[in-house]
């Protein structure tokens, strides 16, 4: 039986995040520049704007995890330590409609780390060229601490991404394709007794995203 699993917003969010994160990785941590139509664009300025886009994406995804489509809700996939342990002991024994307990934990950890990364970025100061839009609101020690955090925490984000990708490919080898549903939104379920989950139109998510982009860029752009 084929059911609709991921709504348009969840899928759009996921792939936008991939692109934005790649851009953030590329533009972060150096003072390089690119030339565009004879204009010089500093990496750090691109990094700043991409960071704001990511902040909007993460905030919207968190809201969608509370009010959005059923499979996207935290209440559907955020499980206790017992369930996570049970999953880790036998990761292939049970079919999960939405994220499995391990994947659900990674999703939440990733959202928390990315939110912390975006927020700490607002308070950074590279001591040379860039000062985050909120760096003037706190004292210098806090700026130093958050700048240092922002640099170091990225490694944890990379580790989570690596874990996520490895897990996806392990499942692919075990003939469970998680990539397809994240593109088409549709998943084939062997158990035909499952009632298809309640969906909200992904368009609402994108409206919410636009609103978040608007106030974030207005305030911090």
């Amino acid at each position: 039986m084929v059911i609709k699993l991921w709504d348009g917003f969840v899928r759009g969010f996921h792939w936008l995040l991939v692109v934005v994160l790649a851009g953030l990785w590329y533009t972060g941590g150096n003072l390089d520049y690119l030339e565009f139509n004879g204009n010089i664009i500093e990496f750090i300025d691109v990094h700043h704007k991409l960071g704001l886009i990511m902040l909007a994406l993460i905030i919207t995804r968190i809201l969608w995890g509370i009010f959005g489509s059923s499979p996207a809700r935290f209440s559907q996939f955020l499980r206790g330590p017992k369930a996570v342990w049970g999953y880790l002991k036998s990761p292939f024994s049970k079919e999960h409609l939405t994220h499995n307990p391990g994947g659900g934990l990674i999703v939440v950890l990733m959202l928390v780390l990315l939110l912390a990364q975006a927020i700490s970025g607002l308070f950074t100061d590279d001591a040379i060229f860039f000062r985050g839009p909120l760096a003037n609101t706190v004292n210098n020690d806090v700026v130093r601490a958050l700048t240092s955090y922002h640099k170091q925490a990225f490694d944890f984000i990379l580790i989570l991404i690596a874990l996520h990708i490895v897990a996806i490919f392990v499942y692919l080898v075990m003939r469970k394709n998680f990539i397809g549903p994240m593109i088409t939104g549709k998943k084939t379920i062997t158990n035909s007794n499952i009632t298809p989950p309640k969906q909200l139109h992904g368009g609402y998510g994108f409206i919410l995203l636009s609103l978040n982009l608007f106030w974030i860029f207005w305030w911090l752009g």
């Binding site: 150096n30 390089d32 010089i40 500093e42 060229f129």
Partner: peptide, 15 residues
């Protein structure tokens, strides 16, 4: 501007 950014990069490379 290009000279300014070149200077900024020398700061960064040493930091």
């Amino acid at each position: 501007r290009p000279k300014f950014m070149a200077t900024a990069r020398t700061c960064q490379q040493c930091h």
